[in-house]
Design a protein around this nucleic acid. Structure first.
Lengths: 181, 181, 181, 181
DNA sequence: AATGAATGAGCATTCATTCAT
DNA sequence: TATGAATGAATGCTCATTCAT
């Protein structure tokens, strides 16, 4: 059996990037140190500096990984929407799910994302991240409605994070219905 | 005339807190160090640790100051809306203004706000911050519409931050009109 | 009733010195800070620097107070020895008592004492402290025996501190009997 | 030839520990700072924190090194005692030598030793340190006499430290003779 | 006489980063 | 290619001490 550490460890770069997300979730952006990530990924300290030239690059990888996760989640969400299904209801499910289980991940994503704003190299990834939702919604409705719904969802999500409690399903539904016209 | 430094410096705590906001704007949350704040506020290093027991308390003060700023800005914005004026237009002005001059301040606010999420003591301030906009909008329309508009504004704002370019006035107007029904 | 703090507080210097001993007992010599002593003595911070020019002077006062305590204790011990009483037994009582209740005080005394060794001004106090026991014993026996007994007691005491357990009464008795001849 | 600094420096941990003893000798226990030790050992500052997780661990190493030194010294002393030689005279030599050349070392040892009392991890080392002398003396006489002599030596030593002057050879001899019976 | 606000020096500790192996 | 020992810069924080009140 190949050991999980050492030269036989494939996809180590990937694993380190994932671990980085977890570290930010637990200790915040400033907790993103080589040591912390190495421990979380269960790789030697030197491995983190070997695969990522510096802390900046590690942040980059974490943002990219988080963006990919978000994209995958949204794609799956959209794919699962049946032909005659109600878009608003599906969006509410997304919001509710997000506010419980993936709450931390959302916060992390926002943190990485804000951190990336002043790093030109990451700008594209950040933009993509923020446009993702709108693109998926556009599969089901016109561009303007999609933009309005995406904005509303973003707004409800971030407000929900602040409240510290799960998103109110009824309130969210009402807002989205009104937004959808 | 009393010197601006030393024992004659009134409101130093306040000034340090304001300086802290500026520091976060320039260097991000992890750049919020005693030294950086001391330099920005033009006070001795010891002064920052004297007025704030620890870094946490400094962060707290910065969040509170940022929240107060936001509240004041929104209040002024709402107060300036004339009787027959169009709410949507006013909101768009808010968004556009925000995306240029106060862009940094928004980013800072979001950062402080996310950082505060896992600090129970700051929860109330964070909640208040996030509810502020909705309350001001409610002065001009019913609760549901206000909630929908607030969500849309939040969403557009955060997406705008990501894009790195000023909010598109026409797109924003279209979205808000549709949201307002 | 005079308040215990403020201008009506008599004997404050004395009280601060006593508090200093307690501080050393709890936090060691390096824990002897103005702030810690002020808190322990329940006096304002400024009071500690007012009554003692600097940390050195505070240490001095603490050593002196500790020496005075030791002297008083030994004097009382000697005064209580009846005419026909056995000196060795009395010494053992002293050792046993010291190893339980006043254990901490002994450690503190040794610490202050060692600290004072390289401070010429405190040399006399340190000497006096170390000679005290011998002088009291001399009230009951000849000089040589007194010196031998004092040395043995000192040795047993310091070894007892190391062991972390109470002095073994029988062993101590045996040693002292042999020493007394 | 390997440089004395940098990656080629073997036994650096050991050297730092020795340097720590010297620092305590010169500046007392509270002078035991990473910086002081680094300078004394002629290693970079980072090296002290690399080899010892924290100040506590450095203290530990210093105590252990001091204990080892003491043990070696006592062993050598005992080994050098010839068959027909007088134990008391040998002990006096130990005391006299100690009171001049190794005076500082004794003070350091006492300081480290007292400091270790409230650190459970160091308790064994402290105990061993304090029992060492008695064990060596037992090589030459019965247990009770050894205990009495060890106590007397300890007592004379500590009293001698206080006086600031060399141990009085005659007085010490008289006391030990009487103790040995 | 008494107080506590203010300051700057110093410390333990953490870390990114380098580099010999 | 991979590792972890090594280093020095930087940080949060504590304190002695000064001094205006």
């Amino acid at each position: 059996m190949a050991n999980r550490r050492g030269p036989n460890d494939r996809g180590r770069r990937e694993r380190i990037a994932r671990a980085a997300i977890g570290v930010v979730a637990e200790r915040g952006l400033e907790g993103l140190t080589h040591r912390a990530v190495a421990a979380a990924a269960d790789v030697p300290l030197g491995s983190t500096t070997y695969h990522f030239a510096d802390r900046e690059e590690m942040l980059e990888a974490a943002l990219l990984a988080a963006a990919a996760d978000t994209e995958r989640t949204l794609r799956a969400w959209a794919d699962a929407i049946g032909p005659g299904e109600d878009l608003v209801e599906a969006l509410v499910e997304l919001l509710v799910a997000d506010s419980s289980e993936r709450r931390d991940m959302s916060v992390v994503a926002y943190q990485l994302y804000l951190a990336a704003l002043k790093r030109p190299a990451l700008r594209p990834a950040a933009v993509k991240w923020s446009v993702n939702l709108r693109m998926e919604i556009e599969r089901f409705t016109d561009a303007l409605t999609a933009a309005a719904l995406a904005a509303a969802v973003d707004g409800i999500l971030i407000t929900g994070l602040a409240s510290g409690s799960p998103v109110d399903r009824e309130a969210a539904t009402a807002i989205l219905r009104r937004t959808a016209g």
